[in-house]
Design a protein around this nucleic acid. Structure first.
Lengths: 360, 360
DNA sequence: CTGTTAGCGCATTCAA
DNA sequence: TTGAATGCGCTAACAG
C-alpha cells in the first residue's frame, strides 16, 4: 500500500481538477497546458506537466469533444477479413494523423453487419465517414450522407452527396484482358464479384475489352471471398470447352480459383492462367506469385482522408468529382502463354494431384 | 413549406432537447424512451420514437458515457497486417456484443506505434484493454495494468495485474517437432520471432522437444513478418549442411520461408519441409497448403472478453490464472517424409528460377 | 407517469 | 498570466 494520498491507481481516474488541486493552480490553466495552448508561465507549465505525469492524468477525449462541439474523428468502416483493406487502413491512419484527425475503426465481421458498424460510428459523433467497399444500397448510403460527409472508397456510387474515391476498375479488368490476350488466350472467363461493390465496373471493363478483341465474354457469378472463386471454377472446368484463362473478381477470389484448379490437378499457368485484382500484400510472394491488377492502396487511403477533411472543413461543398486512381497490371507466375496443345484429356478424367504445388 | 426548425439535415445534429421540443415532452422522458427504460406511457413512448426517427436522432455515446460514469467500452489493440488477429477480432466482437459491451479498435501499423494505440484507448476511457500480441516491455504493460484491467492475448506475461489468454505455445512447437521427427527429419531448424511476443515460449518448446529426441536444436533469428522468414531461410540454405525441415515462428514468417525456398529452386516438401504457426485463414487453401500449428482464435477471443468483463464487473480480483488454450497440428502439403537422397547438389549451385520477385 | 434540478470532465468565454 | 462562471448532451436523483 502507498503512503501518499495521490495516485489513485485503483480508484477514480484523475481529472483536470485533480491535477489542478495537486499543482495548486486553477483548472483552466491545466487545460491550457495539457493541450499545448499559449498563455501559461514556463514555471507553471512545467509543474503542471510534472504533476499530470505523476498522477497518470489522461485527458478524456469524450469530455473534450463534448465541450468543443467537435470530435475531430474520422469514422472508418472496413471488413476485418479483407487483407487489401488493411493496406488502405495503414494509409488512412497516417494521412489522418498528419491532418490532425483521429480515426475510429468499425469492423464488419461474419456476425457484425454494415448497419451496426455505421450506427456505432454515428453514435461516436464522427465528423465524416469513410466506407471501404460498402455493400449497402445507394439509397441507404444517401440517407447516411444526408447526415454527414460520406466518402465511399473502392466503389462507384453516383450521388450528389457521396464522395467517391476509387480505382479505375473497368480499366483494371481491361488491362487484365490485354495481358491475357497478349499471351495468346482467347477463352477468357470472368468470375464476377456477385453482390460485392465494384462488380459492375469490373465486369463492364472485361466485357468491353473482350468485345473489342472480337472474343466472346463469359461471365460467371462469384463473390469477394475464396469459396466464391472455388465454386465458380469447379463449374468452369467441367464445361465441354473450358476457358484457358480466368480473371477473378479479386485476389481472395483468385485464391479460391487456384485452390480449385490445384485440387482438380490442373497446372497453372500451363493449362490455366489466373489473374486477380487488388494486389493484396500476400499476392507478391513467389510461391503464390499471383498475377493481378494492383490497386494503389496508399493513394486511395490518402485521397479518401483528404476528401473527407475538405468537406468537414468546408473547403469542398457537395461530394466533389470522383477521385479515380489508375490501376496497374502486375505480371507474376499464375499467368503464362497459351500452349498449343488442344489434346489434353478432359479435366474430369485426369487423376487428381495431391500435395504438390501448382507454380513452376 | 415547413417552419424553420425542422430536420436540420445539414445543420446541427438533433439532440434530446430537439426531440423533446418537437414531441412536446420533457427531456428526461425522451431519455427514458431512447434507452428503453420503463416509466413512460405507451402513447408518449410511441410519439417520442416517431419524432426521434423523423429527426434522425442518434444518441451521443460520449455524452451518455460521460454522464453515466461508465463507457461500457472494451479497447482492443491489434496489428492491422496480422491476418490471424483478424480471426481473433471476429470472436471479440461477437463475444462483447453478447455481453453488452462495445468494442473500440486501435490498430498498429508501420507508422502507428503501440504507445499511440494504447493512449487513444486510454483517452477513450475504455474500461479494459485487450492487447493482441503486444510487444511492449513487461514493465510498460504493468504500468498500464495499474490503471485499468489489461488482458494480454497471445503472449505470456507473468505479472499480478495482467490477465493472460494464450495458446500453449511450447506445446505447439513441440507438436511441430513431433510431426517432423515422425516424418524422419532430424535436422530441424527453428526461425524464431525475434522481438515478437511468444518467441521465447515457442523456442523453448522447440528446444525441449529436440533435446528429448537427442537432436541438435538450431535456432536462427527471425520475426513475425514475411521478410524475416525470407532472410533467415537464405542463411539456412547456404549452410554447408542445411536443415531438412524449417519450423517458422508463424504463418507469415513461413510464407517468407516458402518464398525464399521457391526462388532458390528448392522443392517443398521433397527437399524441405516447412511448418508455420497460427493457421491463418489463408493457410488452408490447397495451393498454399501450409502445415501449421493452429491456434484457436474463436476461443482466444471469447476467453479474453470474458476475463476482461469479469474484472470490470468485480467478479475477478487481480489477473486470475492464465487461460491456456491447446494448439493443434494441422498437417498439409508443406511437410513430407524425409527422402533418402543425400546426393542433391548444393542449393547454391543450382540454377535459380526466374519468377517475378516479391513486391517490396 | 412526468417535469425539475443537478452535474459528469472539459474548454471557452470573460473579468481580475 | 490567472481564475470564476457557463454549458456541451446526457442521465440520475428527486419532486410534483
Amino acid at each position: 500500500m502507498k503512503d501518499s494520498d495521490d495516485i489513485p491507481s485503483a480508484g477514480r481516474r484523475p481529472t483536470l481538477a485533480d491535477v489542478a488541486h495537486e499543482a495548486q493552480v486553477s483548472v483552466p490553466l491545466v487545460s491550457l497546458v495539457m493541450r499545448g495552448a499559449p498563455g501559461a508561465s514556463p514555471a507553471n507549465r512545467e509543474k503542471v506537466l510534472r504533476v499530470a505525469r505523476e498522477l497518470g492524468y489522461v485527458p478524456d477525449s469524450r469530455a473534450r469533444a463534448l465541450r468543443r462541439g467537435r470530435s475531430h474523428l474520422l469514422g472508418v468502416m472496413f471488413d476485418v477479413q479483407q487483407p487489401f483493406q488493411a493496406d488502405v487502413l495503414e494509409s488512412i491512419y497516417s494521412s489522418a494523423e498528419l491532418a490532425g484527425y483521429d480515426v475510429v475503426l468499425s469492423g464488419i465481421t461474419e456476425t457484425r453487419t454494415e448497419e451496426r458498424a455505421v450506427s456505432t460510428l454515428l453514435a461516436d459523433r464522427c465528423e465524416a465517414l469513410l466506407l471501404l467497399a460498402p455493400k449497402a444500397s445507394r439509397d441507404r448510403l444517401a440517407e447516411i450522407a444526408a447526415r454527414l460527409p460520406v466518402v465511399v472508397v473502392t466503389r462507384g456510387v453516383r450521388h450528389a452527396d457521396i464522395s467517391v474515391v476509387r480505382t479505375a476498375e473497368a480499366r483494371g479488368t481491361r488491362l487484365a484482358v490485354d495481358h491475357l490476350v497478349s499471351l495468346g488466350h482467347s477463352r477468357i472467363a470472368h468470375i464476377d464479384g456477385g453482390p460485392a461493390p465494384a462488380t459492375e465496373q469490373r465486369r463492364r471493363g472485361y466485357r468491353a475489352a473482350m468485345v473489342r478483341y472480337g472474343l466472346d465474354p463469359q461471365v460467371v457469378h462469384g463473390g469477394d471471398a475464396e469459396r466464391d472463386g472455388t465454386l465458380a471454377t469447379e463449374g468452369l472446368i467441367s464445361q465441354a470447352i473450358p476457358p484457358t484463362a480466368i480473371l477473378a473478381f479479386n485476389d481472395r477470389c483468385a485464391t479460391g480459383v487456384l485452390d480449385a484448379l490445384h485440387r482438380a490437378g490442373c497446372r497453372v499457368p500451363e493449362e490455366f492462367s489466373v489473374v486477380g485484382f487488388d494486389d493484396m500484400h500476400l499476392a507478391g510472394f513467389s510461391h503464390i506469385a499471383l498475377t493481378t491488377v494492383r490497386q494503389d492502396a496508399p493513394l486511395l487511403g490518402r485521397m479518401a482522408v483528404e476528401r473527407a477533411i475538405d468537406r468537414i472543413e468546408g473547403r469542398l461543398i457537395g461530394a466533389g468529382p470522383d477521385v479515380v486512381v489508375p490501376p496497374a497490371l502486375v505480371s507474376r507466375a499464375t499467368s503464362g502463354p497459351l500452349l498449343e496443345n488442344p489434346e489434353v484429356p478432359p479435366v474430369a478424367k485426369r487423376s487428381r494431384r495431391h500435395l504438390a504445388r501448382p507454380v513452376g
